[in-house]
Write a protein that binds this DNA or RNA. Sequence first.
DNA 1: TACAAGTGTTTTACCTGGAAAACAAAACTT
DNA 2: AAGTTTTGTTTTCCAGGTAAAACACTTGTA
Lengths: 176, 176
Amino acid sequence: MTAAGDGGTADDTVAGVVRQWRMIRPDLDTAPMEVIGRINRCAALLQHAEDAPLRRAELTRPEFDLLGTLRRTGHELTPGELARETFSSGAAVTKRLKLLVERGWVDRRSDTRDRRVTRVRLTASGRELIDSVMPDQLRYETAVLSGLPDGDQRQVAALLAELLVQLEGRLGLPRA
Amino acid sequence: MTAAGDGGTADDTVAGVVRQWRMIRPDLDTAPMEVIGRINRCAALLQHAEDAPLRRAELTRPEFDLLGTLRRTGHELTPGELARETFSSGAAVTKRLKLLVERGWVDRRSDTRDRRVTRVRLTASGRELIDSVMPDQLRYETAVLSGLPDGDQRQVAALLAELLVQLEGRLGLPRA
DNA sequence: TACAAGTGTTTTACCTGGAAAACAAAACTT
DNA sequence: AAGTTTTGTTTTCCAGGTAAAACACTTGTA
């Protein structure tokens, strides 16, 4: 970790917060805060950072995720399946689908065998859109992460995968 | 990394998503997704996971963060300062402060030297509350993270700190 | 077979946060 | 000193998400 020296001299905001707590309440174990605080802070910043290519395509992140899910699974999905795949509520998915249908990127029809069910798929233009935006978004994300060396990226990915396995197991949520 | 073997056999959801993209679009570099997707997923799960002790105290996470900020800085802050410290908008801070004031945890008064400015501080009961909830919340977070060995936690914290330094530098946001 | 329980999607009601507007006060410029 | 620009907070308006309700359909049970 050649960048460790730099990290030591330029603190992130969580380091500052932790320092304050150590002074105010030296009895507290701040270790969880150092992980969770940073995950949350990174997520918040990345949430803002990933607006640019999606904004160009006039997509919100959740809409992008829906289109991406239909693309990567490669077949029709029901709103319930989409909700589970994207960890959203059914109501949110319904609303988003309405917009995506209006824009012609997605269409939906009733299931012939079960009248309660709606089947959702990408239109041709929806598929074109996601196939075009996906590489742009990944390139953008590559650039956003470029300050972290490749080895470190692989390492943080592996550690977070491990944490995710625990969190997904612990919290009883489905895994792939 | 003694847990690496387990991580290899039980995949997190992001691993599944990445696998699908590799099949559908083998031309794409999925590396950013493996970092960013996992950060976002961990953050979402932790967002839900950290409800329990705060819910007992009838606090939302943003309210908890406001109280914590007043506690750790140890002095009065203005709404603008609170907004910057908690990375929120002024409007959101105003709304939250209104609630916290109503509950008697926070009080605010005008600045004598600048009539535009409001000064905000913890009440005695507000201080008691945060001093009581903070250890509970940290204990809870320790338990949530307990599936990841201590060394791995320290490592992921360090790597995320590095990433945060980059993101905060790149995106021009203030650092401590 | 009739009724009860369960399921899938959509609708409804409500809440929260952000952006912009509003307003007042302070700082700056001429 | 008067007018303009900037600043700090609050208010207003709107969008999006959630939980619950509504509704229709399917499955299970007696």
